[in-house]
Every structure is written in C-alpha cells, then in structure tokens.
C-alpha cells in the first residue's frame, strides 16, 4: 500500500472522527497503536511506560480532533504528540528516580528491557539503541526502525532535513562501533570461516 493511499485513509478516518464516529477512531487506534508502541518502548526502555504514553497519545488525539489541520500529515501529527509525551516522561523520570516494585521483589520477569543481559545480536542491538543519546536514538528509531522518510522525521522532530540525516548517520556509526565485534563474528560464521563452539 503506497504512502499516498495511507494518507488518504487517515484523512477519511479523521473526518469521520470529527463528526463523532467512534468506529473510525477505533480504526485509527488499530493502525497506529503498534507503531507508537515500537517507537516509545525503544525510547523509554519500558513497555509499561510506553503503553501508558500510547494511551495518553490517543486520548490527546481525540480531545484535539477538531483542531487537526488537513494540510498536515496525520502520521506526523500523531508521532509528534507521542514523542513529546515520551520526552516529558523521560524528563520527569530524570527528576524523580522511579523504582518498580518488581525490582525490589527480585522478579526478573518484570524487569524492563535493558536490565536483562543481552546475548543475541538483536538483543545487543536493542541494548545499544537504549544507550544512544536521546536525540540520536529518536532519529534512528523513526528512520531505521519505523522506516519513515527523512522528510517526515524532520517534520516530527521539528529540525532541518540535514540535521536528521546527520543524527541518523551518527547513530548508525555509534551502533556499528558498539556492535562491531559481534558483527564481525556473525559475518565470519555466515561465511564459514569461523566454526561455532558446538562443533569443536
């Protein structure tokens, strides 16, 4: 489905929501809830916090449905709301350090993502993404994880296009530096130049 068609669907649904159609609103929630969850979980490194923010995002979308300007892209609008709420949450957490009850009880199943010891490369990548500075992390997630266009990322983050490209490039280089040993190992395994331990 092309971007243009998705945009038209978003506009049609938003018009219906403005007229009070809750079924159309439910459809918008289904279209964007997982995308927002993906971005916000990587940004906040906590699935529970991310889900709260996703819920708050949709509440804000509903509350301000009448003020949506159809000259703008709906996906840009909703991502902007979600990321702003995520940033506010990060600032709030820096100010007051939060401890989860599950941490005190020693229940490893409730631990947030970055507290688990990563072993596989994708997990290492997740962990490395969490360690990126916030501005590089957000740009990387939107561009390389969500696969949004550079122009859209620039509108969401309200920065120039060149700045977005620079941040994404910088994030990739930082991740490459962190993952280099594991990536080289994986390359060697795939080429057969390095045998896995089980064969020794």
């Amino acid at each position: 489905m092309s971007k243009e068609t998705e945009k038209d669907i978003d506009y049609r649904l938003m018009r219906a929501v403005q007229n009070g159609d809750m079924v159309a609103f439910n459809e918008i929630v289904d279209r964007y809830k997982d995308r927002l969850m993906n971005v916000l979980t990587r940004m906040l490194s906590s699935a529970e916090e991310a889900e709260d923010i996703v819920q708050e995002t949709f509440v804000r979308v509903y509350q301000h449905r009448q003020s949506f300007n159809f000259k703008h892209c709906f996906s840009t609008w909703i991502y902007t709301i979600g990321l702003n709420l995520g940033r506010n949450d990060l600032r709030r957490r820096k100010k007051f350090k939060f401890y989860e009850i599950s941490d005190m009880q020693g229940n490893e199943a409730e631990l947030s993502v970055d507290m688990k010891v990563p072993t596989r490369v994708p997990e290492i990548l997740n962990s490395a993404v969490q360690e990126l500075p916030e501005k590089y992390r957000t740009a990387f997630i939107l561009r390389d994880v969500q696969e949004l266009a550079y122009e859209e990322v620039a509108k969401i983050l309200s920065v120039p296009l060149g700045t977005v490209k620079s941040r994404v490039n910088r994030a990739r280089m930082m991740l490459r530096d962190k993952l280099q040993p594991r990536l080289e190992e994986q390359n060697a395994l795939s080429k057969g130049t390095l045998l896995p331990v089980s064969f020794l």
Partner: peptide, 14 residues
C-alpha cells in the same frame, strides 16, 4: 549486517 539485524529486531506491541 547491522541493517539486517535491525530489520530482524522484534517490534513491540500493545
């Protein structure tokens, strides 16, 4: 390789 890993990363769901 990084690109492939990135594409294979699980996405989070609500």
């Amino acid at each position: 390789s990084l690109l492939k890993v990135g594409q294979a990363v699980n996405s989070y769901r609500v």
